[in-house]
């Protein structure tokens, strides 16, 4: 398998050398060609800076970035065969949709008839044929998003970078676009690098993902690996609805004295057990009910499948689980 993008110990610091802001702080990663790669993390974790390092809008202060094996340290954005879908779409307001989509071909010197034909093809791909004459200001958020996508794809980039492209859409549209993006990526066989702070989006769309925290990669792996075996407390906290158990509680529940994660769906309610607590919150989810039990200082959630008895708020209960469901992890 070919490597599309490679980060070799990459740093991007801002501000004075004496007190730098470490936006990207020693990142190593490899993105396989044709994969859907997500960069997940809270705001300020360095994921967007990493994306901008690939597109060339940021220069690394250390390390090396390779795109298809080539060092791009000295390559300006306009000479990189990657294209970006911007968070705010960045459509040119003074051009109609067709000219927006054909822009990349226009600046490369392609003739009008030819580039308009290609633009129409791209608009058809994103289901916006017949919208070519409109101005971006006349489109809805979802439509603008598609134009931005078509405009980036018309150049036939080797890597498509997407910077929180679905952030501004409402939930229903976002879910529809998630499916569509995923289908498009499979059909085109392109490498997608997708930045998001939404863990569900990252888990459901990506082939593999990197979880960022304070400029570093906390964990990199498939969605299942990240979800089932979070490497650190941070990953477990951020990615999942997983329970994070402090060492004392893990020990009390029969495990070693270490930080551990425990998935709510692997957690059962039990009348008696080593530790019991009070039910403090109930959330009906349709397929089940999420019951939050406060055990000492830790809140633990258990997913009670539909049809099983649900305790009332304030009741005292204990929890039980199979020991192999307990996943041990690092403290940071």
């Amino acid at each position: 398998m070919t490597t599309a993008v490679e980060f070799l110990n990459v740093f991007r610091h801002f501000g004075p050398a004496s007190a730098p802001v470490r936006a990207v702080d020693g990142v190593d990663l490899t993105i396989a060609e044709g994969s859907f790669f997500a960069m997940l993390g809270p705001s300020g974790s360095g994921k967007t800076t990493c994306l901008r390092l690939i597109s060339g809008f940021e220069k690394p202060t250390g390390g090396e970035i390779r795109i298809f094996g080539e060092d791009v340290s000295n390559t300006p954005p306009h000479l990189r065969n990657v294209n970006t879908v911007f968070q705010d779409y960045a459509l040119f307001p003074h051009m109609n949709v067709r000219d927006n989509v054909a822009y990349g071909l226009m600046v490369k010197g392609m003739g009008r008839a030819q580039r308009y034909a290609r633009a129409e093809e791209m608009l058809a791909l994103v289901h916006l044929d017949s919208h070519g004459d409109r101005k971006p200001g006349q489109l809805s958020g979802g439509q603008r998003q598609r134009v931005a996508l078509a405009r980036a794809l018309v150049n036939e980039p080797r890597v498509l970078l997407l910077d929180e492209p679905l952030g501004a859409l409402d939930l229903k549209l976002r879910e529809a676009m998630q499916d569509e993006l995923k289908a498009l990526q499979k059909r085109l066989g392109l490498t997608f690098v997708f930045v998001t702070h939404d863990q569900h989006e990252a888990l459901s769309m990506a082939d593999s993902l990197a979880v960022f925290n304070e400029g570093k990669i906390a964990q990199i792996g498939t969605p299942q690996e990240i979800y089932d075996q979070p490497a650190t407390r941070f990953v477990a906290d951020f990615v999942g609805s997983s329970n994070v158990l402090p060492p004392a509680l893990t020990k009390a529940l029969g495990g070693p004295a270490e930080w551990a994660s425990l998935r709510p769906e692997a957690t059962r309610l039990a009348a008696t057990g080593p530790v019991s607590g009070t039910v403090t919150a109930l959330r009906y989810l349709g397929a089940g009910t999420r019951v939050v039990i406060t055990l000492g200082e830790t809140e633990v959630a258990a997913l009670v499948p539909a049809g099983q008895p649900v305790p009332a708020e304030g009741e005292t209960t204990s929890i039980a689980f199979d020991q192999q469901a307990l996943h041990l992890m690092g403290a940071t």
Binding site: G56, V82, V107, R151
Partner: peptide, 10 residues
């Protein structure tokens, strides 16, 4: 981002 988009598109 408008200027970046332009550069990004070549």
């Amino acid at each position: 981002s408008m200027l970046e988009a332009s550069a990004d598109l070549g």
